[in-house]
Design a protein around this nucleic acid. Structure first.
Lengths: 157, 157
DNA sequence: TGGTAATCTATGGGATAGCATGGGAATGGG
DNA sequence: CCCATTCCCATGCTATCCCATAGATTACCA
């Protein structure tokens, strides 16, 4: 599981430490590294382990229940994705293409999303988070019967 | 289950003992620690075990991969949550971010909420409790038809 | 029943290991 | 032969581990 947010530096060689908590979440996988691709919705990167990408691939193969749009989306993700392995210190090197898309220069914010994570340029993430929080608060999040204290007003005691 | 209220000190290293009763409630889980996040509704922290978060993550993941709502919810919930493991004495270290949100300095009040718990700054909790009691009194709240001696005035002999 | 010993919880502080970070050396493809 | 990437080592900081103490409660035994 990817939880919390971490704030790391990108050095002159475009290397950045993947937070140890995230590395721990991937410790069981054969491929020691992360898969990164450009978010189609945000000026940010999406990331996960290789295992998840494989599962996604299988689901696409077996199920034809996806819409054309979704299939296209998935295809573009696979085409865009890069598998980056950890160096001995737990860092990965970001390509120019990835950095350009997310506006990454000297700092990166790693954002846990449960099964996946995102990488943001600090200022952009600040804006994004403010918006997300506001909307979440306004909408009384009640998706799929999810009931979380502090999110659903109805659970007040 | 998290029951009762406990009053513990926060030391200079921002460590605080999680009440042994709460640790006992989490004894069966693989991850020995707690997940904390900032409450939306209060100037306080919400807490639970990692298992609860994983269940949430799975439900969210199955629901609608790549949907806007899914992503927004994931950001609101998981980006803010921190998984803090117990040290050998059953303490956790609070981050600056968590402490700032709840106004925590030297003391913390752990408040059982059943499936979850809260952490409050003592004075703020006192105020919160007073308000909650007042409201309950005014509305003569009953728990959805549940008749519990000592809670429902009407049952008094 | 009373008194003492043992245990557990909460707390504090010092030592140590791990993490994030930076720079140089070796490697290999163009 | 040059440039870019990867590997390896050094460093400061912080978090974690480990030990010590005190108070309270519980267990035990006479």
């Amino acid at each position: 599981m990817f939880l919390s947010t971490f704030h790391n530096r990108i050095d002159k060689k475009a290397r950045v430490s993947v937070p140890s908590a995230f590395r721990l979440a991937l410790a069981g996988e054969a491929f020691q590294g992360v898969v990164l691709f450009r978010s189609y919705r945000h000026e940010a990167l999406e990331g996960c382990g290789l295992v998840r990408m494989q599962q996604l691939s299988q689901r696409l193969d077996q199920l034809a229940a996806f819409s054309d749009e979704q299939e296209q989306l998935a295809t573009s993700i696979f085409a865009d994705a890069e598998a980056l392995s950890f160096d001995s210190e737990g860092r990965v090197t970001l390509s120019d293409r990835l950095r350009a898309h997310a506006g990454l220069e000297e700092e990166a914010v790693f954002v846990g999303q449960g099964a996946t994570f995102q990488i943001w340029q600090p200022k952009l993430f600040e804006q994004h988070l403010a918006k997300a929080r506001e909307r979440a608060k306004a909408q009384k999040l009640s998706l799929a019967g999810i009931n979380l204290p502090g999110l659903n007003p109805s659970t007040a005691g």
